[in-house]
Amino acid sequence: MKCGIVVFPGSNCDHDCYHILKHVLQLDTQWIWHKDETLDTFDFIVLPGGFSYGDYLRPGAIARFSPIMKSVIDFANRGGRVLGICNGFQILVESGLLPGVLMDNEGQRFICKNLTLRVDNNNTPFTSQCAPGAVLKIPINHGQGRYFADEETLKQLEGNGQIIFRYCDEEGKTPETANPNGSIDHIAGVANANKNVMGMMPHPERCADPLWPEVDGQTIFNSLIQSSLAHS
């Protein structure tokens, strides 16, 4: 099994992802440089977190036009699995692979904290190893993570099961106090209609090494591995 991590200028969670995939999960893991134009064969690709191109203009707006992104978009359109984490999620919405947009947090503050997410669709390559409605503890670390989409788009997302994660309390309920950044409908992660592309603001790579007591992030990578095995 082979996976790739795209490195943009300003990516800063790329090494964390690499560590989890390569050393913890023992996958053949390759770097993909943003200036490359062609992609090797991969089972899945990760767009990591960070501040690609300094978040200039809008987060992800410039990275989206990196030379490699044309190949990443082709890969996704052929059904290849792409996971975008934090800035990776922002790049995926800017590129049009995922609907909606990520705006400044409602409180105008950068938020770095551990919180809980509810798995609202476990029938995807990214969540197949989670129980339905499972509550995962995964940290967020962003200033621009307020998910927004218009009403019509939201209805489609809901109808197609594209809302994968919602911010929730420890019981899996969604009171206003369990929404860290003002995301519409508590949305923390969405997939495309085919469910082969997913973006999430929380960082599963930061809670996936068993040296740390919390490893809920592993379920997402394990799901990807299982679905890739089923695929090949």
Binding site: L57, R58, A61, F65, G100, M103, F148, A149, D150
Partner: peptide
């Protein structure tokens, strides 16, 4: 294409 995100 770039300067505005016309979703918002």
């Amino acid at each position: 294409k770039l300067l505005a995100n016309t979703v918002i």
